[in-house]
Computed example of a mutant assay.
Amino acid sequence: MIAAVVMDLDGTLIESTDLWRAARRDSAATGDEVAVHESATDYVLERADTLEPVPGAEALVHAVAAHVPVVVATTAPARYAAVLTDLMPGLFEPVSSIVVGDFAERHTPIDLHRTVLDSLGMASENVVALLNSTSGLLDACTLGMRARGIPHPSRPLPRELAGVGIPVSPTHHHAAVTLLRMFRTEGVIPPRWRLGKQLLAV
């Protein structure tokens, strides 16, 4: 039975991918990898008021969090996540926890997924990983999580993911509908629960 859902922050919930790309270009000559990462974070935070949720992200989070804990995961530092939670309370209010990375300790996305599982204290097969990167999805599968792709509208995921058993939701609305149907099938919500009513806001 699904007991929790973990979601990517950048690109899945927040329209931030282009800003991070610009930040890394701007910071490329600032020193070693850690210094570049810190400089890029400063660059993004100086422009954080330009960031917005991905269309449909807020409705997705609210729909899922009404039934199971939602964990947001990011390899960005805690100070970045803290600013976003202040700027977008409607998006983050239903979130149970945010797990952040520590670039200085070379934490990788798979390390982040392990931390999420440790923090939840749940078996990996009971956790859905809703992610927008191929590497992250494959890492989640490696750990036994139930991976589901949700690409950024301008950056589709490769079709080959289906060949390794990773389904892809083309939109946030599709992801919400699919997860709620899974909740009903697996007994998270009652079999007679009406899907349409729940999704009015999605």
Results as ranks from 00 to 15, higher is better:
Glu125Gln: 13
Asp32Glu: 07
Leu137Pro: 03
Val177Phe: 14
Arg114Ile: 00
Leu200Trp: 14
Val168Trp: 04
Asn132Arg: 11
Ala140Gln: 04
Gly187Ser: 01
Pro190Phe: 04
Glu186Met: 10
Ala57Ser: 10
Glu33Asp: 13
Pro69Gln: 09
Ala59Pro: 10
Val5Trp: 02
Ala4Gly: 13
Ala140Val: 03
Thr178Ile: 12
Pro89Met: 10
Asp111Cys: 05
Asp8Ser: 08
Pro153Cys: 09
Thr134Phe: 06
Ala66Asn: 06
His174Tyr: 08
Pro77Met: 11
Leu84Pro: 14
Met88Phe: 10
Arg114Ser: 10
Glu58Leu: 02
Leu91His: 08
Pro170Val: 09
Leu45His: 02
Asp111Met: 00
Ala76His: 15
Glu52Tyr: 15
Glu93Arg: 14
Asn126Lys: 10
Asp139Gln: 03
Asp139His: 11
Val36Phe: 03
Gly136Leu: 04
Ser16His: 07
Thr85Leu: 12
Ala29Thr: 05
Ile189Gln: 00
Glu160Asn: 08
Thr185Asp: 14
Glu58His: 01
Arg106Ile: 02
Val116Phe: 05
Arg79Asp: 15
Val164Glu: 03
Val116Thr: 01
Asp111Arg: 00
Thr108Cys: 00
Asp86Trp: 05
Asp86Cys: 03
Asp111Lys: 06
Arg21Asn: 09
Arg181His: 15
Ile110Asp: 07
Pro158Leu: 10
Ile2Trp: 07
Leu120Glu: 03
Met145His: 01
Cys141Leu: 11
Pro109Ile: 01
Ala129Ser: 10
Leu161Ser: 12
Asn126His: 15
Ala76Ser: 15
Pro158Ser: 05
Phe183Val: 11
Gly101Lys: 02
Gly149Ser: 13
Pro191Trp: 05
Ala65His: 04
Phe183Asp: 13
Leu9Trp: 06
Ile14Lys: 01
Ser133Met: 00
Thr85Val: 15
Ala176Thr: 08
Arg24Met: 06
Thr178Phe: 12
Val61Trp: 10
Asp26Glu: 09
Arg184Asp: 06
Pro190Thr: 04
His113Phe: 12
Glu52Asn: 14
Gly149Ile: 03
Asp26Thr: 06
Ala129Met: 02
Pro94Tyr: 07
Ala162Glu: 07
Leu200Phe: 14
Asp10Met: 04
Gly144Trp: 02
Arg79Ser: 08
Ser27Phe: 00
